[in-house]
């Protein structure tokens, strides 16, 4: 009696509906991120469109007075842009050199033990909520500034700028550290073997070789400083002021958005729409900077791989 081979089927036994449903479910989850972007762009552009039907774009972009909540109303965004610029300059003066120097210390000088100590401290600094930095600005930095320079106003751009700088410093340090450490040790060896000092190796070989990464870090830091809200709302004031004097009270784009939302502004009014117009400018600026930074980073990743 010969044994018959058991039937072997290589076609699908059942259609596995679960697998299909799950695949679509997971895709939907991933698509939510795209929907979010669409929502951001959609909401901002629709409301901004209504806004521009009542306020000419040229008045908005080149006007020098921003008084949408007071009579006579005026919708020139330049004072807010100046305010934001002052904060960015202050933050850049603090965060870029200090962040780069920290990164150089960590990457070129510190031993492993020091690194293991300093890196978590930077992470803690990066994890502190922005509201805490705002508090720090009001209760420590501003009083100190006013002791040093008595003409400083209670609300001023300098204090907020310094604190925003402290806030983005850990990010600058950590991204620059990554960029410096991506430089192969062979280059350092080559330079040292020629009788260079550590400064010469760092400043003339390692930093130039990682310049694009460092630059990307700087761009991201500026983007973050533009979008920073709480510290500038608390410390920089609420007076749209076309000035470059950091000791005066100013208003940034973000602080204006907060100011409007704190008052009970009815939807559909022109003042409500200013929120979206300013938000659109803010979003466009940070988006462009982030795209630039990502493009630079993608390019420098290719260099050493």
């Amino acid at each position: 009696m010969s044994q018959t081979a058991p039937e072997i089927r290589l076609t699908r036994a059942r259609s596995r509906p679960l697998e299909k449903v799950l695949r679509w479910l997971f895709f939907a989850c991933a698509a939510i991120s795209v929907l979010t972007t669409l929502a951001v762009v959609g909401v901002l552009s629709v409301e901004t469109f209504y806004f521009f039907q009542q306020v000419p774009a040229s008045d908005f972009l080149f006007g020098t007075r921003w008084t949408p909540l007071l009579e006579p109303k005026s919708y020139g965004i330049l004072p807010l842009l100046f305010g934001t610029t002052l904060i960015v300059i202050g933050a850049a003066i603090v965060a870029l050199p200090v962040g780069l120097a920290c990164a150089i210390y960590l990457s070129e000088y510190a031993g492993n033990r020091t690194r293991d100590l300093v890196k978590p401290i930077l992470e803690i600094l990066a994890g502190i909520p922005t509201i805490v930095y705002g508090f720090f600005a009001i209760t420590f930095v501003t009083p100190s500034l006013r002791t040093l320079i008595p003409s400083t106003e209670v609300f001023n751009a300098a204090s907020a700028g310094i604190v925003v700088g402290i806030m983005v410093l850990p990010m600058v340090a950590s991204l620059c550290d990554d960029a410096l450490r991506a430089v192969p040790n062979a280059l350092r060896d080559g330079a040292y073997s020629l009788g260079a000092t550590s400064f010469e190796v760092t400043a003339r070989i390692v930093v130039p070789a990682s310049l694009s990464g460092i630059f990307a870090a700087f761009v991201l830091a500026i983007s973050r400083a533009i979008g920073e809200t709480m510290a500038v709302t608390l410390a920089a004031g609420a007076t749209p002021n076309l000035t470059l004097n950091p000791l005066e009270s100013i208003q940034t784009m973000t602080a204006y958005i907060v100011q409007v939302s704190l008052g009970d502004t009815p939807a559909g009014t022109l003042s409500y729409q200013t929120l979206f117009a300013v938000g659109a400018v803010l979003f466009a600026m940070t988006l462009v900077l982030n795209l630039i930074a990502n493009a630079i980073m993608n390019r420098y990743r290719d260099v050493y791989e």
């Binding site: 991120s33 979010t36 972007t37 901002l44 533009i226 958005i257 938000g279 940070t286 988006l287 990502n294």
Partner: peptide, 24 residues
């Protein structure tokens, strides 16, 4: 596209999310 989109969303200022939350 989704990857780039997510990377960019990570860099959008938090207050913009606030605006979207308010509107939607």
């Amino acid at each position: 596209f989704i990857t780039i989109n997510i990377a960019n969303l990570a860099g959008v200022p938090s207050i913009v999310y606030g605006i979207i939350g308010l509107a939607i």
